[in-house]
Amino acid sequence: MTGAFTTPSFEGLKALLLHREHANTEALERQFARIGVRVTRVWPELEPGLGFGDFDILLFDADMGYDGQFAWAPGEAPMPTIALIGSEAPGRVSWAAAHGADAQMLKPIGSSGAYSALVIATHAFARRKALEQKVETLIGRLNNRERLAEAVAVLMVRHGLSASAAYNRLRRSAMEARVTMDDAALRILDETGAGEEKSSGL
């Protein structure tokens, strides 16, 4: 069974709704109640004693919202976000987009839309987090390329090897020690950096 076939359940989730009191927010609260999501509505900012960390999902007003409402830089919301869009003036829509809204709902809000927005926002958020993770790993690897080259050079000098033989030796030692190439390279550089010429077993 793949994830594509599972019925999402939002029962018990806590949503933060950043919007002034309005018929739209009442309609939204009714929709969320039907699917078991508890809504806390605040405007314009969180009251003392409440933190964004207390919530699983954020809905914010794209019409009257402003940067200072959020505790993070644009696009870095630590939870799925849904923009509530009234005016489709490009300035407001771009602002909501810059804040990395994972999904959107258009006002006026009637009796549908919240469920699909939740499904899309949670999917988009999961994808966003997975991508961030991947980018972090890749940046780490990129940074390590220099180390890798340095470690190969150390092995060439130390053992009088060709570049490819030194590379193979590094790879073999990584495999034997069951660590990544990066970690194996780091070990060699650490030894060299400490200025000790004792045998590393390589």
């Binding site: 019925t7 359940s9 939002f10 029962e11 039907r34 699917i35 078991g36 469920y115």
Partner: peptide
Amino acid sequence: DPFLSRTPL
């Protein structure tokens, strides 16, 4: 339970 929020599947 039209949104299957509370039904064990």
